[in-house]
């Protein structure tokens, strides 16, 4: 059983369900969801979250703005963030790195990729 409490941030309920399902299959059963950055910040206040998986394109507060906000909040600054997005341009990846994303996966992902990336971040 994993000791991770994972926050899944994606505006697509389908994607959240896929990620949640994959995480459960990987042994990570503790997770909460948010459909944008604002909701995610609320979830952070309410749960002991220690790992974040976030999309980029979302309404209200997108993934990049969310991570930027996260990194400027001392309490959450060190939480590992894995971004899973359809944006695969070089500039996108570089912007994400600058914002403070720890690793980056372009959709569609495989369970193996997710597991590998998470292990790397938690090592």
């Amino acid at each position: 059983m994993s000791d991770l409490f994972i926050l899944i941030v994606d505006d697509s309920p389908t994607m959240r369900r896929i990620i949640k399902n994959t995480l459960e299959r990987l042994g990570h059963r503790e997770s909460v969801e948010a459909s944008n950055g604002k909701e995610a910040l609320q979830q952070l206040e309410e749960h002991p979250i220690n790992f974040i998986i976030t999309d980029w394109n979302m309404p209200e507060m997108n993934g990049l703005e969310f991570v930027t906000e996260l990194r400027t909040t001392p309490e959450y600054a060190k939480i590992p963030v894995l971004m899973i997005t359809t944006r695969g341009m070089k500039d996108d990846v570089l912007q994400a790195v600058q914002a403070g994303v720890n690793n980056y996966v372009v959709k569609p992902f495989t369970p193996e990729t997710l597991e590998q990336k998470m292990n790397k971040l938690l090592a």
Binding site: N57, N62, E65, G88, M89, K90, D91, V93, V106, T113
Partner: peptide, 23 residues
């Protein structure tokens, strides 16, 4: 619409695409 972050805008062509290996 569950749209991207900004108001309607036609995106300008961006730089080269990264594949997962590059990332």
């Amino acid at each position: 619409s569950p749209a991207p972050e900004s108001p309607i805008k036609v995106q300008a062509p961006q730089t080269s695409a990264f594949n997962q290996n590059d990332i």
